[in-house]
Design a protein around this nucleic acid. Structure first.
Lengths: 241, 241
DNA sequence: CGATAATTTGACCGTTTGGTAAACATTACA
DNA sequence: TGTAATGTTTACCAAACGGTCAAATTATCG
């Protein structure tokens, strides 16, 4: 019910003020005649800070003041470039989503399963190591039920995964890989690799100081390649030989 | 610096008021003479609502009013049972942590690798299916750098994992399983199974309406057993035969 | 029943929050 | 250099926030 009212209020407002003030919702900085060097720099600077904050505390848990402090500018100054907190979040998501899906796009039908899976794992692990904030940003979004990206999930993401799932099925038909559910295979690569970004504290805590150096990503890569390529070689137990 | 000052203030206060008001920090409900049926019921009711809210929005993103509304009682009434928002969160974490680690505790050194790994995966998947909120509560905590549970991670959790890692190593020495990093094996089981709770929206979106029914947990179980037990049977590519 | 302990609530407080208005400062360019 | 466009800040607002208090209500039990 509140949602309906809010929507109504918005609509009414839009109708009343139509033509009188056309740039509602567009940040001041974007209403200027030319796009300046400063605009690009500051927007970059803000999104960088927003990534820091949103990736840790999620949307609701983050505040504009916090982002402003990290960005090293005043709150009204942020709002000169992005009209609302939501606008910052959306801009961030839009920018990050594309690069985040790149490794999957590189998954090639022409390649052989071993090298494709191997390099997909490596790429995803590198991203978890080099861009952990981006990973956490999405993780936060997922935990909250993806209120801001559900369309992207059901649209572009699903299409891409459907396409790659077909590649994997083709490999199975060609006998290059065992028959398996391609969707859950992709899920398992996502989860195992992103785990090292999203659950970094836990990984460090469990490994302890000795093994928690950056070498853990190399160890993870070795293990995951073994798991997905060679297998763990679990022997069938033989009862009372 | 602010932390130091705050700590000092606290200490001072504690010293000054010592004896004059001994039950500082203890909720009113716990200061009563006998522990009533109502107290147990209401605390249960509150923690249930708190789990709903904290698991989705994290600590900072959740509000007492929100929890109160879900619990169906007034805000001051919540604060009669838990003196602060942090107290609710802590009580929740304490209660959930134990049950969450149970599957790992059940991991048995006497069993054979196949059945132990298989049943560990199944148990973890059942928990992801039946207790997704608990999983998300921890995931939120991890994403935020575990500000409230770091000690538990470095202490009890690490000890438990160390112990189970030794079990896995023993299996490898006995030739029952290939040599592999036991820590990363455990991480990969955690991540693949919890993924179905934490990233539920994404899983549903990608699988689409047709396959997103509850059968997805059965499919996941089948795939993960194949991955961890049998292996994916990836063939080595043979160059230009 | 009466009285005492336990529970619940409305009103409230100081602070933080998302966001605005307008004055002020700086830059770009003719 | 002048001036109009662009950028920044101070002061502020209403709502939401975590939390308190005293009064009112309800349960318990002799």
């Amino acid at each position: 019910m509140p949602a309906t009212f809010a929507g109504f209020a918005c609509l009414t407002k839009a109708l009343i003020f139509k033509g009188e003030n056309e740039d509602m919702g567009i940040p001041r900085a974007a209403r200027t005649q030319r796009r300046t060097r400063i605009q690009e720099e500051k927007e970059e600077q803000i999104l960088e800070a927003a990534l820091d904050v949103f990736s840790v505390h999620g949307f609701r848990g983050s505040t504009i003041d916090q982002i402003a402090e990290v960005a090293g500018m005043s709150k009204p100054n942020l709002l000169y470039y992005f009209r609302t907190k939501e606008a910052m979040h959306r801009a961030l998501i839009d920018r990050v989503l594309d690069t985040w899906l790149e490794p999957l796009r590189a998954f090639d039908a022409e390649g052989d399963p071993e090298s494709e899976i191997r390099s997909y794992i490596r790429r995803k692990l590198e991203m978890a190591r080099d861009y952990p904030r981006e990973s956490r940003l999405f993780a936060n979004e997922m935990l909250q039920g993806a209120p801001h990206v559900e369309d992207e999930l059901k649209g572009p993401l699903k299409s891409l995964v459907d396409e790659k799932a077909e590649v994997i099925r083709a490999w199975a038909r060609a006998g290059k890989i065992a028959k398996c559910d391609p969707y859950h295979l992709i899920f398992s690569i996502w989860s195992t690799t992103q785990h090292y970004a999203d659950f970094d504290v836990q990984v460090r805590a469990v490994l302890g100081q000795e093994h928690a150096g950056e070498g853990r990503f190399e160890d993870a890569a070795r293990f995951l390649e073994q798991l997905f390529i060679g297998g763990l070689g679990v022997r069938h137990a033989v009862k009372a030989g």
